[in-house]
Write a protein that binds this DNA or RNA. Structure first.
Lengths: 210, 210
DNA sequence: CAATTTTTTGACCGATTGGACAAACGTTAG
DNA sequence: CTAACGTTTGTCCAATCGGTCAAAAAATTG
């Protein structure tokens, strides 16, 4: 079975596939799967449509490859959440990392959001499999923190959801955020403001009652 | 200029337009604008495509009418945020109302999310106009609460974003929430769990330091 | 060099799509 | 009855789309 990696591929194939995936990320994240055309992706990749179809036989293959890579990137910050260090510090860095991803990889975030919004038709198995397992595992870590009184007792699942929602908001709803903040407050500083606010919200909101 | 209301329309026209808009909400929110076809909407509305086009001349007209109505519904909870009552109570009810909207009107939420994700091509003026004005106004209310020491000093804009993000998450990312929670925890009770968690998070997170 | 394989492209195809249109249908008023 | 008006539908069209194919062009190999 052919892996999604570079097994049995020539140098040109490896390079061109990367160019195509980069172009597809741009187009898909801006227009959604059905809203994007192969022609658009081909043009963004600087090649003709039949040429693109020489590297990916179907439009859906591009999307699938993109989604598989995406999920790994997306789960990485949560994987790093460990119960080695101080709980509050761990949570703070997790929020930081997620917010940095929203800032540095907004296209990936929007691609993911688009897929979920449409009911996750192509990645549902991954959500119920990898994602759920990972969350279950981290929920146990958080529960441990709560039991030992390091953070306030609350619902660990919804805590994770809240971190996801608030951080990804700055990528997925970027145009709205910028429209509301206006030209002066909507500059590059908005991510630092957001980081400060979210840190206060979550750390104060989870401070254990003495 | 024809208003979007029922001026100069027959009884049948008013009724059928409502049926079409209801069907279009269902289809658009599930597939996005470009992912939806007039045929799908017509079938969901129980009529033929030419018949539908008799009531709305273009696909975009349906979407536009839907979006205009939507924004009013969407802003209503924020409009109710007043500095009459106790700040903490006001905030709690605002979060409640937003969460209830995510629960009761998920299609509207997803339609809106879809539009924003695509860069808000059709409602940008409304975001920079009505929405921004309303937020600016409520930011002042919140600033007043902070000045008088009723809630902790923090960034009012990002507080509003956080409330939006966390509540709408349960509509927009519903499939992910359900996949992660699993069959047992993902039932109808998830909204009550979310309400409890969000209340704790925001109210504790914003408690003024004595 | 020639032979072979990989890469690129122009032309094309069938299906789907948004939308136009005229004819038919139904209802009501005179 | 007829005329007028609102409603509904079958048929059609041009544009767009995902994808095929054969043949040319380029790169690789012996």
């Amino acid at each position: 079975m052919e892996g999604s990696t570079s097994r049995g591929r020539t140098r040109i194939q490896k390079e061109k596939r990367e160019v195509i995936l980069e172009a597809a990320l741009e187009v898909f994240s801006a227009n959604g799967f059905r809203g994007s055309t192969i022609d658009q992706i081909a043009e963004a990749a600087g090649m003709s449509k039949p040429n693109l179809l020489y590297y990916f036989r179907r439009k859906e293959d591009i999307h699938e490859t993109l989604m598989h890579r995406l999920l790994d990137t997306w789960l990485a910050p949560l994987k790093e959440l460990d119960n080695i260090g101080d709980p509050m510090t761990e949570l703070r860095s997790y929020i930081r990392r997620k917010l940095e991803m929203a800032r540095d990889y907004p296209r990936e975030s929007r691609l993911f959001a688009n897929e979920i919004l449409q009911g996750a038709p192509r990645i549902m198995p991954m959500l119920e499999g990898e994602l759920k397992s990972l969350v279950d595992e981290k929920v146990e870590v958080i529960k441990g923190w709560m039991r030992s009184g390091k953070i306030a007792k609350t619902d660990p699942w919804h805590l994770i959801f809240a971190i996801w929602a608030t951080t990804q908001h700055y990528a997925d709803f970027d145009v709205q955020v910028r429209a509301v903040l206006g030209p002066d407050r909507g500059g590059d500083g908005r991510f630092e403001d957001a980081a400060r606010f979210l840190e206060q919200l979550f750390l104060e909101g989870l401070r254990p009652k003495s």
